[in-house]
Design a protein around this nucleic acid. Structure first.
Lengths: 139, 139
DNA sequence: TTTATATACCTAATGAAGTTATGTATAAGA
DNA sequence: TCTTATACATAACTTCATTAGGTATATAAA
């Protein structure tokens, strides 16, 4: 029994250690990211022309230094939905005997991206007003 | 028939006009705000000491120039939940024969607010990296 | 050689948060 | 009198994401 607990402790310790080093890190994304996934995907596609799902998850992780990890359970349904809505086009490609589904913005998608980005700007501006109310010092 | 269409047009026009003036404006909040409500509430309470529900909706509307309208269906359940979690304390008050439920941060709530605000900062920083990738120009 | 990790896709069950619609009730103004 | 503003509340529904599985190939480690 005591041995079991000791082993468990070692396991937990190593897990936590790994967490600290950002290796196994079962990162729980903040609630704040809810609703921003589509905007993120669209912006990345606008920038990179075409990307495949897995590539998107890795890109986001890299850009945010591991702070945001898009879960596949969120990503793939989102991509399928945007494809169904005519925002994205798909193109299959076989690389190294492994399949890839490349997504790119449609014309409509490109237009919608502009709106989404402006919404994001407004959102950020509003959130900043809310949390760091700058008294109008200009006069 | 033509008359009907004309009347409809006038109605739509006036509705849009009212919208522009921010009067009737059935503002649909961007998806992006999902997940930010608690943070907003906590920050406002941290700043103002105590507030009641309706006051919060008005304050947010004012600060964001009408861009963000907290719906009551989201607000009240959120307040109740935060109270249940020990983040908020309630205090009833009767003003003008009308009831008000004033909320304020508990000690735990105040601590949690710090975390939430730092999460928000990270979130904003990450979103900015994602949508406006600033190449590291420093060298 | 088996096993774990990385790449690459997928979905079903569940949960959390918000919208819409509705209800109650008082006060003030047109 | 009828509408708007103030002030609370909740039930039904939608949307988005998490959790937890599943398939399959390639590579590195034990």
């Amino acid at each position: 029994m005591k041995l079991c607990i000791r082993i468990l402790c070692i396991f937990v310790y190593q897990y936590e250690l790994a967490s600290c080093l950002g290796m196994t890190k079962k990162m729980k994304n903040s609630q704040l990211y809810k609703g921003s996934l589509n905007t993120i995907i669209m912006k990345l596609l606008e920038e990179n022309g075409k990307m495949y799902g897995y590539e998107i998850t890795q890109k986001v992780k890299a850009i945010t230094q591991g702070e945001l990890n898009i879960t596949e359970g969120a990503l793939y349904p989102a991509l399928h939905k945007m494809e169904a809505e005519g925002i994205l086009d798909v193109e299959m490609e076989k690389v190294d005997n492994r399949m890839r589904k490349y997504y790119k913005l449609t014309e409509a998608g490109t237009k919608e991206t502009v709106n989404r980005l402006s919404e994001l700007e407004d959102f950020i501006r509003n959130m900043q007003s809310l949390v760091s109310p700058k008294p109008n010092l200009e006069f």
